[in-house]
Structure formats: C-alpha cells, structure tokens
Design a protein around this nucleic acid. Structure first.
Length: 339
DNA sequence: ATTCCACCGGAATAGCGGGATA
DNA sequence: TATCCCGCTATTCCGGTGGAAT
C-alpha cells in the first residue's frame, strides 16, 4: 500500500514547464502578445513578435499560455512550437511543426525537406496559425523565417535571449520581418519570484508544508530566474518527501538551490558525446586552458581524435549549452568551466 | 613596418546511413 | 540487388584577426 504524501500534493505543478491557470507579474507582456495575435481571430493579419530576455523570465511559458487561451476562443486556430537550438535545420523545424499541427508523418531519412514544406502549407491552408520559434537565433536556414513572414495568416512568435537576435540575418529576411513587435521580459525581482513560488506551493504542496521565509531564501538566490526557483522548490519538496518529513526544512532548501543549478548542467552533460566529454574533463582538470594545449591533451587522450575544426565546433556547442566559457580571441583565448 | 603565427569560424565538399525506386 | 536520393556530420579549405617576432 502506498503511504500518503507528506509534502507534495500535485507534482506536476512543481515543474517549470507546467502552465498555471493564471500568470503572475507578466500582465503587460501577456496583454501585448494577445493584442498582436488577436487579429488572427477575424481573418486579420497578426503582428509578428520577438520575445526577448534572459533565461527563466517566462518567454516560452507566456507565449504558450496566450496561444492556449486563444485556441479556447477559436477552435479553428492551429499552432506549433519548435526549439531551434535542438532542431535547427529546415527539415527538423517543419518536421516538429507538422507533429504539433497533428499531422502524422512517417520519418524516412530520404524525405526531401520541400515535401515537408508542401505538406505543411496544405495542412495550414487558409486557417489562422501560430508558430513559436524558441531560440530563434540558432536557426540554420533563414528561409524558414522568410516563408512564415510571407504568410499573412500565420503569426510568428520568435523567442531569444537578446533583442539583437535578428540583426545577423540578411537584409531580405530582416525586411520581411519589418514591423515585428519586440516584447521585453526583464528578470523577475526577488519578490516576484516569491509570488510565483507561492502560487505553486498553493496548488502543488500540502498546507503548511513550507514556510514563507523559505520561499524568500529561494527568491534571493535564484538570480531572477523562475526556472531555477521552481526547480529548487521541487527538489526540496522531493527530498522532504523522501525523508517523510511534513515540512520542508531550511537545510533542505539550502541544499536544493545548488542542486537546481546542477540539474541544468548535468542534463546538458548527458547530451555530450565521448569527444565532447573528454574536452569537458580536460577543461575541468585545468580550470583554465589555452586552445593549443587543450587540443594536444585531447588528441593524446582519445585514440581517434577529431580534426581541429571539429573540436572548435564542439567547443562552441558546449559554450552555448553554458557548460564552458571562453575569454579572449584567437590563440589568446582561454577556455574554462562555466562558473 | 612587415611578416609570422596560432587560432577563429564561414563555406564548400566528402562520406555515411538508410529508405525509395527500378 | 543495385542505384539514387536526402539530410547530417565531419573534414577540407581558406580569409580574417591581432599580438609577437624580425
């Protein structure tokens, strides 16, 4: 027989991806997104958008929240979202969108991308549609943006950390995206993080499972990042639960914070291949290391070393994962672990 | 002032895996 | 079965960069 939970009421509420019924402290952004999207409901042309701001500020969550709300009002609207960092190629973007749009496609390695594009276009037709492109600056083929921007019944919601995300694209793409609304997502303040956590506590934890002062501790140390704050709360709750205590102690909270940050990291580390983890370990060992020495040690370590250019690609990938950092340029560059 | 050096990163190219086609 | 096609990854090629060496 399962013993009753001591702390957790509803575990789903404690994940960062969970979509709460109401959003706190993002009214301005939610309203703005809604306003730009709404014309789509009466066959008007929606505004394309760029949502920008640091990690954990609710960009993706708010976009999905608004789209969900909108779909409740009109069953005709179709939508999909892709993370362009994980799925950067034209093929993968369309593949994922088609799945979100409810088209079952058998994946064959020989399927030409154009076939997917055609399928997508016929699926959408004249229906109002919304496409969310997360980490849009990582997109490999700019044609994707151009294609969507030309569809007047498709609303494009692009998400990036920096407002300058679109600057690097070529003129043709940029001019087709002219009129894109920029919506800023600032870091949450400590107090706002506490509010967000309180909401999760209310629905996710049993009554009196955690004191408010504990939430303030999380808020103070989460660096304005709601994802880290929520994950810390979840980890703390799980650990308290495992200890069969009825309340989350201060000690558990303190330990949960670094664990929440570590969790992001180890998730990324798991994605690395053998060569990449060797590189990671060498950098870890040295603390700081120059490119030349790094490559030398790496090629000694593995029996089938990749070529230098490939290693540079690996390193920039790990940089993007926020696993490592680099300072300086050219041969004066230093690689180190992300602090 | 000029050349050298070590590295960066974009672009073109090659090779691979695997489904489709004849 | 042999061949073609496609996307993806790794490799090759190369112009650019900026401090060091001459």
């Amino acid at each position: 027989m399962r013993r009753p939970n001591t702390v957790i009421e509803d575990a789903r509420v404690l994940t960062a991806d969970f979509l709460p019924k109401r959003m706190v402290h993002r009214n301005a952004q939610v309203t703005e997104i809604k306003r730009n999207l709404e014309p789509i409901l009466d066959d008007g042309t929606p505004r394309n958008m760029l949502l920008y701001g640091p990690p954990g500020t609710g960009k993706t969550t708010m976009a999905e929240y608004v789209v969900d709300e909108l779909k409740k009002h009109s069953s005709n609207v179709v939508s999909g979202s892709v993370n362009c960092w994980r799925y950067p190629s034209r093929f993968k973007v369309y593949y994922n969108l088609l799945q979100d749009f409810g088209t079952n496609i058998i994946h064959r390695t020989g399927t030409p991308t154009d076939e997917l594009v055609d399928k997508f276009k016929s699926k959408v037709g004249n229906r109002p549609s919304i496409v969310i492109l997360d980490e849009v600056d990582q997109i490999e083929d700019e044609r994707i943006l151009y294609d969507f921007a030309r569809e007047s019944n498709t609303a494009l919601i692009m998400i990036a950390n920096k407002e300058t995300a679109l600057y690097d694209f070529d003129d043709r793409i940029r001019s087709s995206l002219e009129g894109t609304k920029h919506v800023r997502f600032p870091e949450y303040t400590k107090e706002q993080l506490v509010d967000i956590l309180e909401d999760r506590v209310k629905w996710g934890l049993r009554d009196n499972a955690v004191e408010k002062s504990m939430l303030h501790r999380i808020g103070n140390r989460a660096d304005g990042d709601a994802r880290i704050a929520i994950n810390a709360l979840r980890i703390a709750a799980e650990r308290a639960e495992a200890e069969e205590s009825e309340e989350i102690s201060q000690e558990v909270i303190e330990n949960a914070l670094p664990a929440a940050e570590e969790e992001n990291k180890s998730k990324s580390i798991d994605q690395l291949n053998r060569h990449q983890s060797v590189l990671y370990e060498i950098i870890e060992e040295h603390g700081e290391i120059k490119p030349g020495e790094l490559y030398e040690e790496y090629s000694d370590e593995v029996e089938d070393p990749k070529v230098k250019r490939t290693v540079r690609k690996y390193l920039s990938k790990m940089d993007h994962y926020r696993l490592i950092n680099s300072e300086g340029e050219g041969r004066w560059r230093t690689y180190m672990l992300q602090s």
